[in-house]
Design a protein around this nucleic acid. Structure first.
Length: 322
DNA sequence: GAAACCGCCCATACGGTTGT
DNA sequence: ACAACCGTATGGGCGGTTTC
């Protein structure tokens, strides 16, 4: 193939220039000086026979040709990045690779903490970065800045592969000394209490979304937090209630004065799935971590529905263990 | 309102460094 | 030795702010 002196360095610089729309900022991103970046821009202009970036007042704007290059150039770089990674051998025993996972505190608590213990045994030199499920997370996956996203399957992207990991139900959480709630929770009580809601940046947690769609804004949401664990802490010492994933509720109840109650609504089970970039589908390192996460997920105890749980407790009272 | 000033940004000239 | 690339210094354009 003849690229007429167009090398991958120019492609990386073009990507920086197109996304930053500034020679100075592109230079900072490329760890080059502004003049060096300006010369690269001049080379790109000669190559394409187009100004690419033109000054409008104090800003630089993209020409139509440059606009048309933004996504193809990005796709091309992501594909190169993943191709290079997939060609490299992955040996867990000696790999120093860094994996970036976008997860909630809930997934970290119930799955990732265990999975990383196993990873430390199999691949002691690998490192991990856990990032929040913020509004840019899909963009970060597209750009190759995040290797995996673990979140409810209903939020998964259709454009990238995914695999279900585990199911969970919802549980209502109140302070153990909450005087307004007994052993059971009625719909009337649920609606009369102040609520602690969980929102991940721009998006509400799956229960909040489900409830709002079904019943509208009929709850008193008194506190909004970004994670599940703080939601549990924020009901302690108050008459508030939080509705969160059951495994997280059980974990928190082990060290916080909480009472767990079945929700007075039939909330559907939530399937959490693992998602990765389509270009990483054959990457040996990604396959290793996918396999490990899937294996750890199967070790999670299956969640009983609350109806079954009630029945089990009743049977336990009737037929106590000897 | 106009001029002066300032800050930001880009392009160019020039010299140093590095690899072939 | 030469080419390629980089950084520093510098100049010019532009817009915003200040001063008169």
């Amino acid at each position: 193939m003849d690229f007429h002196n167009f090398d991958i360095g120019l492609l990386v610089a073009l990507d920086a220039l197109l996304s930053e729309k500034s020679v100075t900022r592109a230079g900072q991103r490329l760890h080059l000086s502004q003049p060096a970046t300006s010369i690269i821009l001049a080379r790109l202009r000669r190559y394409f026979g187009n100004d690419l970036l033109v000054p409008v007042g104090r800003k630089m704007v993209l020409t139509p040709l440059a606009e048309s290059l933004v996504q193809p150039v990005r796709d091309c770089l992501v594909q190169i990045q993943h191709t290079v990674a997939s060609k490299a051998q992955f040996n867990p025993a000696i790999s120093t690779r860094r994996f970036c996972l976008a997860v909630s505190d809930y997934v970290t608590a119930i799955l990732i903490s265990q999975a990383l213990q196993e990873a430390a045994r199999e691949a002691p030199l690998t490192t991990f970065e856990l990032v929040r499920l913020d509004e840019n997370i899909e963009h970060k996956l597209e750009k190759g800045q995040v290797d995996f996203i673990i979140r409810p399957a209903v939020h998964a992207l259709a454009t990238h592969p995914k695999e279900p990991l585990f199911d969970d139900t919802h549980t209502c959480v109140v302070w153990s000394k909450n005087p307004l709630v007994g052993k059971r929770l009625s719909r009337k009580q649920f609606l009369s209490l102040g609520h602690v809601a969980v929102h991940f940046g721009h998006a509400p947690a799956i229960f909040e979304d489900w409830f709002a769609t079904r019943y509208g804004k009929i709850r008193k949401i008194e506190v909004v937090t970004q994670d599940f664990e703080p939601a549990c802490r924020l009901v302690v010492g108050t008459n508030r209630i939080a509705t969160i994933m059951s495994r997280m509720a059980q974990l928190c109840a082990a060290y916080l004065p909480l009472r767990l109650l079945p929700p007075p609504f039939a909330i559907p089970k939530v399937t959490h799935c693992l998602q990765w970039h389509r270009y990483q589908d054959q990457d040996p390192g990604t396959i290793w971590l996918r396999t490990l996460l899937k294996r750890e997920a199967t070790k999670l105890t299956p969640m009983r529905s609350h109806k079954a749980e009630h029945g089990r407790r009743r049977r336990a009272r009737i037929f106590p263990k000897q």
